[in-house]
Amino acid sequence: MEEIGGRKDNYISYLKKFSFQYPQVIMLILIFGLFSSLAGSWFLSVQNLINVLRQTSLLYILAIGQTFVILTAGIDLSIGGVLSVSSCICAILLSQKLPISFAMTIALMIGTLFGLANGVIVAKIGIHPFIVTYSMMWISKGAAYVILGGDVLYGFPPSFRFLGAGQILGIPVPIIWAGIIFFMCYVLLVQTRFGRALYGVGANAESARLVGINVSKINVIAYGISGVLASLGGLLYISRLNSAEPAIGELFLLETIAAVIIGGTPFNGGEGGIERTLIGVFVIVLIVNGMNILGIASFWQDLVLGVIIIAGTLINEYVRKRVYRWW
């Protein structure tokens, strides 16, 4: 008797513990349930769910980079601008009939350079990441407009379009990209010394330095990863849209930051991870997708996103305090 009662208690306390440690998962389930009941048949169709996964994978690639930076207690506001400038450069090179691998390499290098520049200025000169990456956002956005001059380039070769719009065995290629990048970054964060050092720098840069970690190197690499992932996301995006223009990066900044925060990686750094960000990305993509199906005008969607950012953080904070008190 006692044993069964004990087991039941354990089961309930495990559920309690889980919901208090991962309130985001509960939030995700609630949102999924809400939209399933409101917009049932179309929302739950295979077509739409694959569409959700495709949007998730693109936003997730960008949000992984943002997570790396936020884990170091920084922030990268230049993601949208870097995305624009590198995809515009790639589009121009492709329109000159240059090989795809060459165009992509150049675009990825540009993105990496912007990211590394962010990192070097943050780490070596010691300016607040907010100011550095914000200025870099302006610089890269301006560069994208200067390069393309307000034009829209469209019509890319089929083999380039395959990267963002194609399918392998019925699975959209962007999902495979996101899977590969998630795997690589997860191993990098969890299994390597670099990953441990990244968490250490985010939690307390001064003690990380005293332990012998090269803090500025870690910072530079984190911003570099964010830059290269932003430009990769941009390439996949223009490949799916089949067109490129300087304004394509505007939307992504708010969504990546919201995804990281809702997922449970706080701005203070040193805590969280990219697997949590995946939940945050799902929450955002499902909300936007559900609102689109329900026919809510795009003007009002930011309002919902704003409320969710504040409410999500409130719940996360509240729950964390409770967890510390109870367990």
Binding site: I261, L303, L305, G306, V307, I309, I310, T313, L314, E317
Partner: peptide, 17 residues
């Protein structure tokens, strides 16, 4: 006690929309 960055980031979205 939420970070000002997040709260005002949220209100920015709400006010803009």
């Amino acid at each position: 006690g939420l970070p000002p960055f997040i709260v005002t980031f949220g209100t920015m979205g709400i006010a803009q929309s």
